[in-house]
């Protein structure tokens, strides 16, 4: 995999250090790694290869014995399917908006938390709690207690009379996803803030840099790699969002809040169309790999893989 090449590791605890003489036999050294490697290949790669195989078959489970090779027909059908395009667009919107908003909120919360004040650890505990609620529980909670048109808290607070899940299905789902992922962003960004060197900050203060100036020219540049990592990891998780959509809107009304994972699920488990849903799965993987390539590069390049953040 070319994307994961690291620059020749500097001396020290890098990955490519010379082997100690005593353990010369490479197989002996590999032995502890092999069970994990073989298991992972078997469980994650083989099903995916089967998906690729299925994606070239016409196969509907409702019609047994209907399986035959169709070449790229499934892919052609998938791209001609307007629901697929809607789902793809919804996936992009959901991922980009949720990552962006939860990062902005996470940055705000992290800045509030990055100082000494009464009950700081309690506040931090409160803020990570939405991430620890079962996503399924969080989704149902928002669907009922928050968004319900008659008894929901949102309508009570705003004095409105809106059926949120019908009027703004994607927005409602995104609200729940943002709520769930903001703690993740907060924690990562807070770690970045706390990794700043105190001396540099103090020096800036001594030099008469204002608070905003210090933030813009010292903190933000320092923070940028944490922000990138947070964005990419968040994107990888949020692209797969399924719980919220399944439990809150079932992709509806119509296809208004259908994303790719939910649509693939629908085509496979409600439409029983193995061929087309597999083709969609392959497309999702290709799209994800593009994002993943950047993430891998980032993780290897800006973070010292051998020993955490530099």
């Amino acid at each position: 995999m070319t994307t994961t090449e690291v620059a020749p590791a500097p001396a020290g605890r890098g990955a490519e250090q010379p082997a100690p003489r005593r353990h010369a036999s490479p197989w002996k050294r590999r032995a502890p790694l092999l069970p994990a490697l073989i298991f992972t290949i078997a469980v994650t790669q083989i099903p995916f290869l089967v998906t690729v195989f299925y994606s070239f078959q016409s196969w509907n489970l409702v019609r047994p014995g209907s399986q035959y090779f169709v070449g790229f027909q499934n892919y052609i059908d998938v791209f001609a399917d307007s629901t697929f395009r809607t789902a793809m667009l919804n996936t992009v919107v959901l991922t980009v908006v949720c990552v962006f908003v939860s990062m902005v909120l996470g940055l705000g919360l992290a800045l509030l938390l990055d100082r000494k004040f009464t009950g700081r650890s309690v506040v931090r505990t409160l803020i990570i709690t939405p991430f620890l609620i079962l996503p399924a529980a969080g989704a149902l909670l928002w669907k009922t207690a928050m968004f319900d048109p008659v008894h929901g808290l949102l309508n009570f607070v705003f004095g409105t009379d809106i059926d949120w899940l019908s009027a703004y299905p994607l927005g409602s789902v995104m609200t729940q996803v943002i709520w769930q992922w903001t703690p993740f962003m907060t924690l990562l960004i807070l770690a970045g803030l706390q990794a700043q060197s105190k001396e540099v900050l103090e020096a800036a203060q001594v030099d008469g840099a204002g608070r905003w100036r210090t933030f813009a020219s010292i903190t933000l540049p320092q923070l940028s790699r944490y922000l990138q990592l947070a964005a990419l990891l968040g994107a990888i998780y949020i692209v797969n969002s399924f719980d919220a959509i399944y439990l809150m809107t079932q992709g509806g009304p119509g296809t208004a809040s259908t994303n790719l994972p939910f649509y693939i699920y629908q085509r496979a488990f409600e439409g029983f169309d193995v061929g087309q849903s597999s083709a969609m799965g392959v497309i999702v993987v290709i799209l994800t790999l593009i994002v993943a390539t950047f993430t891998l590069r980032l993780m290897f390049r800006t973070f010292d893989v051998s020993g955490g953040v530099k």
Binding site: T44, I46, P47, F48, V50, T51, Y54, I236, V239, N240, F242, L260, P261, I264, Y265, A268, V274, S277, S278, G281, V282, V284, V285, T288, L289, V291, A292, T295
Partner: peptide, 10 residues
């Protein structure tokens, strides 16, 4: 990073 949905059918 492989979306789990891609492997669910197999």
């Amino acid at each position: 990073m492989l979306p789990i949905v891609a492997a669910i059918i197999p």
